[in-house]
Design a binder for these strands. Structure first.
Length: 109
DNA sequence: CGGCTGACTCTGG
DNA sequence: TCCAGAGCCAGCC
C-alpha cells in the first residue's frame, strides 16, 4: 500500500486523494474536502484545484463551493466545462446555477 | 530567502 | 438580498 502516511505526501496530493474518492454523480464542497483532509482549509482546496489542469486524474469538477454553486474561475471556460461535466454525471442545476447539496452532496466514505 | 498568487467561508451592515 | 472585509496556507518565481 502506498504508505498511506499522509504526512509524507504534499498537502495538495492529500487533497487530490480525497477528491478522487468522490463518487460520480455526487459533489462535495471545498469545506467538506478540507474537513476530510483535516489539516487544511477550504481555501487550500480551492488553491489546490487551481493548480490542476482541466484534464487530470482528479475529478476536480465534483468540488463546488458551500453555496452549491460553481465558483467562477479562469476565463470562465473552466467554469462552464465544470457545469457540463457535472450535468453529464447526472447533477442537476437550477436556473440559479445551483445544485442541491442535500441530494447530490457527498457524505464522505 | 522574500514576495506574490489563488476554484473559500463566515460575519456584519 | 447584496456587498465588503478578514482569516488562512502552500506552491512557485
Amino acid at each position: 500500500m502506498r504508505n498511506n502516511s499522509p504526512s509524507e505526501l504534499p498537502l495538495y496530493e492529500q487533497i487530490y486523494n480525497v477528491v478522487r474518492q468522490i463518487p460520480p454523480g455526487k459533489v462535495a464542497t471545498y469545506g467538506q474536502v478540507a474537513r476530510i483532509v483535516g489539516k487544511c482549509t477550504a481555501r487550500m482546496v480551492g488553491y489546490a484545484m487551481s493548480a490542476l489542469p482541466l484534464q487530470s486524474d482528479v475529478p476536480w469538477q465534483r468540488v463546488i463551493n458551500a453555496q452549491g454553486k460553481i465558483s467562477p474561475h479562469g476565463d470562465g471556460i473552466g467554469t462552464l466545462l465544470q457545469r457540463q461535466m457535472l450535468e453529464a454525471e447526472g447533477i442537476v442545476f437550477d436556473s440559479q446555477g445551483k445544485t442541491e447539496l442535500d441530494r447530490f452532496g457527498w457524505h464522505g466514505i
